[in-house]
């Protein structure tokens, strides 16, 4: 599917190949990074780093894996390294203070505004989901529910994507059910 890019690569026209690849994968890499890191600014920085790595790696890429597989692998590795670095530096906590603040104030939000309390506060519930569920469900919706795309980007089988999605949804529904029902 990336034949045009492969052609440029074969001709060692790195600049043209990279330009096409950037155009095609920039947003996908960013969305994958965002679903892994949960932070827009960091996802943007990582996307820059990923494309620098891709640029440097282009001459060594020999088309063994498909181009998309190669790009997504670099993206996942870069982001997971960043997550490990974050975990190793407790000052930049994995427990995002902004999220904790929101989480703490859930009951208040629900009792003060019955109208919005009836709505599901998706962001708060997502923040409480186990990591593996949240990654899949986030990417699934960011990628307009394209199952195969999500499977390729996370490098997991299609069946696993479905299973994780189901579990994530059931978990979210359980959370929603546990909320105190707003008094009318």
């Amino acid at each position: 599917m990336d034949d045009d890019i492969q052609e440029r690569l074969a001709a060692q026209d790195w600049r043209a190949a990279f330009g096409m690849l950037l155009e095609r994968y920039r947003d996908k890499v960013f969305r994958l990074a965002f679903s892994l890191l949960r932070d827009e600014t960091q996802a943007e920085d990582m996307t820059q780093d990923v494309f620098i790595k891709i640029w440097k790696g282009l001459p060594g890429y020999h088309g063994g894996a498909s181009l998309s597989t190669w790009i997504y692998t670099i993206t996942r590795n870069t982001c997971l390294t960043e997550l490990k670095r974050r975990a190793a530096h407790p000052t930049i906590s994995l427990q995002d203070p902004a999220i904790e603040e929101v989480t703490d104030s859930i009951p208040a939000m629900q009792t003060t505004d019955p109208e919005s309390g009836a709505e599901m506060d998706v962001q708060v519930m997502l923040a409480r989901l186990p990591e593996k569920y949240r990654r899949v469900i986030t990417l699934f919706y960011l990628e307009q529910k394209a199952y195969e795309e999500v499977a390729g980007m996370l490098s997991i089988p299609l069946g696993t994507v479905k299973t994780l999605l189901f579990r994530a949804k059931k978990e979210l529904l359980k959370m929603a059910a546990r909320r105190p029902v707003p008094v009318a």
């Binding site: 947003d27 943007e44 820059q48 919706y141 929603a176």
Partner: peptide
Amino acid sequence: ALDAALTRELDAPVLPADFD
């Protein structure tokens, strides 16, 4: 309802224009 909420809430972030 959950699906609708997720579709509404999880909109993709956009890279800044000067990214490239």
